[in-house]
Design a protein around this nucleic acid. Sequence first.
RNA 1: GCGCCUGUAGCUCAGUGGAUCAGAGCAUCGGCCUCCGGAGCCGAGGGUCGGAGGUUCGAAUCCUCUCAGGCGCGCCA
Length: 554
Amino acid sequence: MKQAVVKSVSDALQGLGKGWGLEVIPEVVVEVPRDEALGDLATTVAMGLAKTLKRSPRQIATEIVAELHRRPNPFDSIEVAGAGFINFRFKREYLYERLEHLLQKEHSEIRADIGRGRRIQVEFVSANPTGPLHIGHGRGAAVGNALCNLLRAAGFDVQREYYINDAGLQVRLLGLSVYTMYQHLLGNLINFPEDGYRGEYVKELAEEIRQKAGDRYFNIPFEVCKDFFINYSYKRMLADIMKDLRDFGIEFDTWQSERELYEKQKVQELLKELQRRELIYEKDGALWFSSSRFGDDKDRVVVKSDGEYTYFASDIAYHREKLDRGFDTIIDIWGADHHGYIPRIRSVLRAFGLPEERFRVILVQMVTLYRDGRPVQMSKRAGEFITLREVMDEVGADVAKFIFLTRRPDSQLDFDIGVAKRESSENPVFYVQYAFARISSIFRKALERIPGFKESSGQEVDLSLLKEDEEIGIIKKILQYPMVFEGAVQAFEPHRITYYLQELAGLFHSYYNRHRVISEDTPLTTARLCLCKAVQIVLEEGLGILGVKAPERM
RNA sequence: GCGCCUGUAGCUCAGUGGAUCAGAGCAUCGGCCUCCGGAGCCGAGGGUCGGAGGUUCGAAUCCUCUCAGGCGCGCCA
């Protein structure tokens, strides 16, 4: 639909441009007017040209319209309006024709090959394996997952990756916490580590170990048995994380271990290379990366004076690894509390020569939990927090995902578990799913009432019988999907799909209440069923991108 | 103190490559089931887009300042 306008206007400008002395034909920006009485689509090119041509937008628009009228076009009307908008209204035949295409090609018709096979890696969640996933991770997971689905539908070769921080202090601290708890269980009341993990899961892990190993590690110094406690604990946590994500409906392609980067000498070698390039220097007994030469406010330590690597060291190696794996674009999805880390990583990728626009960080803002209007106190220190698992069990994965995807990632989110659960029958996700299920139900009914009816395309149908205002409105809405899709892809914003789906479902419910799909009039029934089918295809496509189920029954 | 994000209807939030941008859902109130699924539909009320300047023919949108909330600013992660 958009292409028809872009092409017509571009062609017209091609002809007019010479007379106007235009060197370049501007991009034709197309938008959907708020008020549909104005038209189906509109363009603002004339206003954009006003400055360069030093003429009034309306005058330019008028000339463009005149030129458009000289050529064959799919429009019923083309009008100049307001300050210089050109409004287009399509001929019905054109709408029916596009609908026909959609019904024949289904999903491939409403996707667009924007990526052309370019490789893109999205790293998300990447929570430390030191505790269960909480609600904030769930938001990151939902956003990352939907973004990947969106990019994949747009023809990108997408890899989903989870980076496991299984080296370093945090997993050690987890091991020590579990070790301490284990000693306590056996009556050895040693001091609990200062910043240790205190969640209930630590106690469960200790208990598990006590059952399996008995008192084998009783009173054994931590330094002697630390490998066992660290490895057992983090691997167990990681297994839980993997299960939670799977149950949340999210699959990763690769799980990159930080440890492995060390074991394969990736970190060590890379630091040597950077030293050769003189991007790493020594000061105060530590090794520093010259990140300030690449836009960071100051240089950062990679090896501490005690000889330990910082996380930044492995992060450098990790991002280098991503480049070496040949990705065209790298997207990192982080919790907003890590935003201070962006200039640092950006400086690394700059040092490796990656063009600016090929690296992108999407920050996902904090989630504040409420239960029936009252904030739920979360304290990581005291180990009190609501896990993703609890939210999933209580409100359901689809509801949680949909709610996460109805907000822009960079806006803080108040999530009321009580409300999400109590209002479950009026939840937006059910509204959209219900439209899908309702259509499925219509098809079940049609199959039993109309002998020989096939749900699949290819049957004889006269779409021009779809004359009701609601029907035309739905067709137009459906044909707008590719525009929404394209915009979402270019902005990396899956939440645009969420809003679109609610609008489409709304139009459908309204139509359903007003007109009967199945009637004695077989040609009309067939045409209406085709319209339903088209709605269903788009709903299924959109829900698929969000990672939300499209159920045939609810 | 510095940096990043966010202030839009009672609540939760869309809309921020200017114009045709005052929107949705929930909540509130009033209607709709002899009929394909009422998890639905129709209608009503409700906002000086945090505030003040500025740029422009035109600003929720861009610039400056300011207020409020959140998050960061380590040889922690």
